[in-house]
């Protein structure tokens, strides 16, 4: 769950995704004594993952600015059609703004909308409208890639 989210957030870049995932796990471990049980473990970990992703981008802005083309080239060289499709998916996710990227990956992980709203700290109503728009944008990006 964490590594796949990091991979999507880092536009499919494997090494950066692993680095970010490591950062998330470290943050989870360090935040563990403060876990109050007000939410489920899953929501709590998602919150740390989302916040770590956003902080990582701020702290390592230059490093995180990976051009999508590079990623596509890395993957489309592969002869496997499934891998090529997955690479296109990550590239399409990478075209979305950071917040939208995180939201859509939680949707793909089948997290309840109310839970996503809790993780992001926004109202469920706003989130539903936003998810509808993100889905549309993601589909457009994928259709353009195909």
């Amino acid at each position: 769950m964490v590594l796949q989210m990091c991979r999507g957030y880092m536009k499919g870049h494997e090494e950066l995704a692993k680095d970010l995932a490591q950062e998330v796990f470290i943050n989870v471990w360090n935040a563990l004594p403060g876990f109050k049980g007000n939410s489920s473990h899953k929501t709590w970990i998602y919150r740390i993952t989302v916040n770590s992703c956003l902080n990582y981008l701020r702290n390592k802005k230059e490093q995180a600015n990976i051009p999508i083309e590079t990623i596509e080239q890395n993957h489309t060289d592969d002869s496997q059609p499934l891998e090529s499709e997955i690479a296109k998916l990550y590239a399409a996710i990478g075209l979305l703004p950071e917040i939208d990227r995180l939201i859509i990956m939680m949707v793909l992980n089948e997290i309840d909308y109310d839970e996503i709203a809790q993780v992001m700290g926004v109202s469920s109503g706003n989130l539903r409208v936003r998810i509808h728009r993100i889905k549309k944008n993601l589909k457009n990006h994928l259709n353009n890639a195909n």
């Binding site: 919150r47 809790q118 992001m120």
Partner: peptide, 14 residues
Amino acid sequence: IDLSEAALKNNDSI
């Protein structure tokens, strides 16, 4: 700054 807060709240703390 608490990383386990909701993203908006965490962003506001930062």
